[in-house]
Design a protein around this nucleic acid. Structure first.
Lengths: 279, 279
DNA sequence: CCGGCCTACTGGTCAGACCAGTTCGTCGGA
DNA sequence: TCCGACGAACTGGTCTGACCAGTAGGCCGG
């Protein structure tokens, strides 16, 4: 046996060992139970004191494991609940959090985020146009009507009370119609991150009414394209709309990076009217 | 004042209150310090016992906070390190983990993942073709050469020793040339998740040599398109390549969802030769 | 029948202790 | 002079035991 090891010694790569901590093994076991379906959302884990006995560790280890699981969105502890920690349904919240963290540590620039949004939302529009069912259309029309109502009623607050709420519903309906949950999640996350970043710094108190009208016009066009099944147009509208809306919020040196996606002509001979993209 | 509240009572929405736990406020403060740059990667937090004094809480609260921060990839604790917990550089690891968890809980299907990869990698190719510098080209050529060498030398293991390593380097170089870190990260993450899912179940012991040759051929074509600055071709190659490679791994009912992206002709009149996409 | 109380839990937090491990200064020997 | 071994002074990891506030649900009295 030792000979075998010794003969291959040059090839043997010893990996860096790291002590396995007790709470980590608890996390592994609980995660595995959730992944394999032994623990389903809505079910409850034993109480901390029971887990402590089952795993044969102290309560601190159990608690640290539960903290990790909780921060990963897998369980939730409520004081006083005699049923114990609850197993949660899979949520996109952790995804949003980790992406937001990346963006907030300047690992991501606003330009990259907007560029990414152009990709995601144009794709969502494209897929929605080709795959939408009548139910999706109904939903979209309802969201559009809500937007229109809110826009005409005036925007009492820039908060999530009125227009932007309806707008979010419309966008969510589009991404749902695309049939790709990952696309939907990522689009929502990136949208959220962009909103967070912009809410932090400029807070441009622009004319809310005019913005709402422009957005309404844009979404109406998108709706028509989706209804007509014209995926190329729907995709192009998303790219153009995002560029028009966000280009001025970008630092000048980041603006050119949006262009390669913009002038990506889906159908030759139908060039976007060039001046519309100029600053 | 009460009148104001009482008058709007129908509109007042009371939010669900949740007790703020001690460790949560610690997490908040440390995160804030990292986001604002007061704590930079490589720096160290005070020891747990010092933090316990500074925050005025017990050591368990400090430890639970550190566990959460650690599971979010923001700090790392090493036993015995007299400098205390280290602040880590932003990493995409948490993003990968949360997405992997979503995929493993069946919240995401393989079809959605592959479809998303088609979007991400085709966009990466498109951007790379338009924005690549000469340095990027050199890097790509080197990775391609490494792939060729590994493919001809034979693949001793299907592990990350040879070909797939070089292939990963090539793909990473492409996404880096695209100039969008978020795109790069998401592409890498989704690629990783897909690999994990496929490694779990089928383990199709296909002819590694043939696969490597096909991949090499594909990447060579991508490289040529990027060098030529032909973004449309590069993008189409990515979509076609992914579809050919993964369609047979999908459950039949998920295969049609890839088509809308496939026959999305970037330039009219240049239809993909239909039979190439057939099974 | 219903509302309030009481018990038996729950999780949140703290204090104190021990252990294994790391770091680093010190000291003795070569 | 240099260098290795030793040990003090920490570190984080874990366990124990205790207390508190809060919840759920049964019990009892109205």
């Amino acid at each position: 046996m030792p000979d075998e090891v010794r003969g291959d010694q040059r090839e043997v790569r010893f990996e860096r060992v790291s002590p396995v901590r007790a709470y980590e093994r608890i996390v592994e076991q609980v995660e595995e139970a959730i992944f394999t379906g032994q623990l389903r959302p809505g079910q409850h884990l034993p109480s901390e004191r029971d887990l402590m006995i089952q795993f044969g560790v102290g309560r601190s280890s159990v608690r640290e494991a539960l903290r990790v699981l909780q921060s990963n969105g897998m369980v939730r502890s409520r004081p006083g609940d005699p049923r114990g920690p609850e197993v949660l349904a899979p949520s996109t919240e952790p995804l949003l959090q980790s992406m937001t963290r990346l963006a907030r540590t300047d690992a991501l620039s606003l330009g990259e985020l907007v560029q990414f949004r152009m990709v995601l939302e144009s794709t969502a529009n494209l897929l929605a146009a080709r795959l939408r069912t009548d139910e999706h259309l109904t939903e979209l029309a309802a969201a559009l009507a809500a937007m229109r109502a809110s826009a005409e009623r005036g925007t009492p607050e820039c908060g999530p009370t009125g227009f932007s709420r309806a707008e979010a519903a419309f966008r969510d309906a589009v991404t749902r119609a695309s049939g790709n949950a990952l696309l939907r999640v990522c689009a929502a996350v990136v949208r959220d991150v962009v909103a967070t970043l912009l809410a932090d710094s400029p807070a441009g108190a622009d004319d809310q009414r005019a913005l709402a009208r422009a957005a309404l016009h844009h979404h109406t066009a998108v709706f028509e394209a989706i209804r007509a099944g014209d995926g190329d147009t729907a995709a192009r509208l998303a790219r153009r709309g995002l560029h028009e809306h966000y280009a001025r919020h970008l630092p000048p040196e980041q603006r050119p990076m949006l262009l390669p996606l913009l002038d990506h002509r889906p159908t030759a001979g139908e060039a976007p009217d060039g001046d519309a993209t100029g600053a």
